[in-house]
Amino acid sequence: MENKIEISDLQVHYGDKSALNGISFDVHPNEILSIIGPAQSGKTTLLKVINRTLEFTPEATVQGSVKLDGVDIDTIGDVYELRRRIGMVLPLPVGLPLSIYDNVAFAPRTAGLRTKSELDEIVERCLQQAALWDEVKDRLNTLGTKLSGGQQQRLTIARALSHQPEVLCLDEFSIAIDPVTTMRIEDVLKTLQTEMTILLVTNLVQQAKRLANRTAFFLNGDLIEIDTTDVIFSDNPANQATYDYVNGTFG
């Protein structure tokens, strides 16, 4: 089975400070890979490398290679096309200054889709998947920035799904969402697994345990351990630090 993403010897520096020190691992197609680890361990930086938004940080330098479907992402000429293939949910929910409908229809429209019926269908499907449809279906034309924090976060999830990405990266998607709604979204993620590969960065260790097929543990820019979730959460993972973090001894 060919790997969806291959990362080899990836190093990222912010100026003199090292954020990722030469990590290598593969992401299998149609798996949920959760990435856990304390703050400053390079989780978000990794996601930014994958969709090449790290390029907006001028002081960041990247070495090593990231391959998507066997193609090095640095050689992809149309970076916007690359970003459309990767759905990204950022931890800070930012509503575009557009209506709720236009927020979700933004990505399909930038990709060139203009048919009203198709857009309607996408908007309804994505908002339902993000567990937001019932709350906003009567006011799709109000401004997306007027929603509450948790609703905006679900709106960003709906936006990330709207361009039917091959890889969905979720960075702390549930920090502002209540537990019940989080469970609904987690169920959706499990069903979406058949269509796409999911990278889940989370501070909630239990969420990783519930959802992920495999789990990677990052610490201070190093990949300490990557294995099936059962092994990581068992009594004897390969590294003691993993056991300590997962069981709450530190972190």
């Binding site: 938004t53 907006f56 950022l90 930012v94 575009l96 200054p97 557009l98 933004f106 990505a107 930038t110």
Partner: peptide
């Protein structure tokens, strides 16, 4: 700021689209 613009960039918007649809209205 850049984190705000990134919300549009991650959806595959070009610089021009980000300026027109997000930065200009704000």
């Amino acid at each position: 700021a850049t984190p705000i613009r990134e919300a549009a960039y991650v959806l595959g918007a070009s610089k021009w689209q980000v300026l027109k649809r997000q930065v200009m209205p704000l």
